[in-house]
Amino acid sequence: WGKEGHYATCKIAQSLLTEEATKAVKELLPESEGNLSAVCSWPDEIKWMNKWRWTSELHYVDTPDFRCNYDYDRDCHDSSGVKDRCVTGAIYNYTEQLVTGYNASNSVTNYNLTEALMFLSHYIGDVHQPLHVSFTTDEGGNTITVRWYKRKTNLHHVWDSDIIESAMKTFYDKDLNVMISAIEKNMTTTWSNDISSWANCTSAEEVCPDPWASESIKCSCNYAYRNATPGSTLGDEYFLSRLPVVEMRLAQGGVRLA
C-alpha cells in the first residue's frame, strides 16, 4: 500500500489492541507515544537506502504468471532464489522475533523489537494489498501502464494509492479518517460475522500469512488484473466495483495485525 493504506491498516489495528498490547506498543514506540499508525510507512521510507536495500523484496511475493495461486515453498524466495525472503517469510520472521524477544526475561536475543514491530505492522498490511501477491513478469502490475481516469499510471499504483485517493475525494470529504470510520462501521455491520474468522488461524500457528497471501492472489486475478489490460483507461466501472475489495482488504489487514 501507499501511505494512506498503511495508515488505515494500522489505525484500524490500533483500535483493536488489548490493554497489554497497547502497553507493549507504547514501550516499543516511545517517540510516537505508542501511535502505531505514525510509523507504519517507515519500511517504505527506508527500503531505498543502502543499509536497508535487503528489505525491499520483503514487501511482496511474486507468483508464477497466470497461475492464480500461491505456495510458500514455491514462491517465497527473493530474485536470487534465497528462501524465505518474501512478505510472508518476513511476517513469520518478525513475529518470531517479537515473541522470543518481548517475552524473554533474559535478554539473550538482541533483536531490535521496535524495528520488528514496525516491519511486522507494515508487512501484514502489504500482504493484504492484492498486487503484492501477484505475477512475476509484470512485477505485481508495476509494468502494466494504464490510465486512471485522465492520468497515466500503472496498475500497482492504482491499487497502492489511486483507488484510496479517489475514494477519499468522491465519498469521504478528502479525509482519510472519515474513510477509516466508514470501514470500521462496516466491521460492526456488513462484516461483523466475518471478523472472528479473519482473526483466527485455522492452523495452530501464532501467525498465518499464507492464507492471507492466497486471498490476495485470488483478488489479483479476479479484480486487479481483470479488465485492466496494458493501455486501458480505468474509470468509474473499475473504481466502483474494486473499492469494496480495497476496503475489505484494509479491514482484514487491520483485524489480523491487531
Binding site: A21, A24, V99, N103, E206, A258
Partner: peptide, 15 residues
C-alpha cells in the same frame, strides 16, 4: 489478532 497474541502475558513462546 497478531499483536494481541504476541503481547499476551506468558504468550506461548514457540519452540
Amino acid at each position: 489478532a497478531t499483536l494481541n497474541q504476541i503481547f499476551t502475558p506468558y504468550a506461548s513462546v514457540s519452540q
